[in-house]
């Protein structure tokens, strides 16, 4: 489903090269629940950006759902992002000026889905995250946990094969965090492929597989034994 080979990425910070990723090989099967864990500055966000086509690697190959994406143009990558990947960000990244429903509709809108179907699917997604009653609220009128659930609904609405979650509970209180974690588990239960990025060992342990990254290299990749 997802296959990365020899991915390298270097940043330039104040004149000093920073090797964010070094010859990373990474593979995810359909239906898997993979946690990527590492301390701050380990390169895990860079890896997630590569997976989500939010950034391009300096070298290496990346095959997603049978397509080579590393060499695609920006616009082609935009299509991939729209169809294959649902994003869940640490800081939600909802558009403040749109309502919850409209935020969820965004990816469908782009695909040109008809108004009726769009509305229904967005409501269905909001229902899944338990926020059908808050459809008309603006993000500022929702709590952090609710905002993150709207973001999840947005990720679900397009029905993408992969859900990519970057520290989804990093900005939430523990109760909201638990709710969101539970939601993610449910989604996995329903057959979604999930890639979770976290620095929290406990949360990582709830995945099927744990990939540890440090100083731009994958240092361990193991099944979680419960």
């Amino acid at each position: 489903m997802l296959d990365m080979k020899q991915i390298c990425k270097t940043y330039n910070m104040g004149g000093e090269p920073v090797y964010a990723l070094q010859n990373v090989n990474f593979h995810v099967e359909e239906g898997e629940f993979v946690a990527i864990i590492g301390p701050s500055g380990s390169g895990k966000s860079t890896l997630m950006n590569m997976i989500g086509c939010l950034d391009v690697p300096d070298s290496g190959t990346y095959e997603l759902d049978g397509k080579m994406v590393a060499k695609m143009t920006q616009d082609q990558q935009a299509v991939i992002r729209n169809e294959k990947i649902g994003f869940i960000f640490q800081n939600f990244n909802l558009l403040a000026k749109l309502t919850a429903l409209e935020n969820v509709e965004l990816p469908l809108l782009y695909r040109g889905t008809g108004a009726r179907e769009r509305h229904d699917r967005a409501m269905e997604a909001l229902d899944k995250v338990g926020l059908a009653g808050r459809a008309k609220h603006k993000p500022m009128e929702l709590s952090g946990g609710q905002q993150q659930r709207v973001a999840i609904a947005r990720a679900l609405a397009g029905n993408p094969p992969i859900l990519l979650a970057d520290e989804p509970i990093g900005n939430l209180d523990s109760r909201s965090g638990r709710e969101v974690t539970e939601l993610i588990h449910n989604l996995h239960g329903q057959g979604n492929t999930i890639i979770l990025i976290t620095h929290n060992n406990t949360q990582a342990d709830e995945a099927d597989r744990k990939v540890r990254i440090q100083d731009g290299c994958i240092v361990s990749d193991e099944k979680v034994i419960r």
């Binding site: 989500g52 920006q74 935009a78 992002r81 729209n82 994003f87 558009l95």
Partner: peptide, 9 residues
Amino acid sequence: VLKALGYKS
């Protein structure tokens, strides 16, 4: 965000 959701430049 819009780009991440697949909107073109």
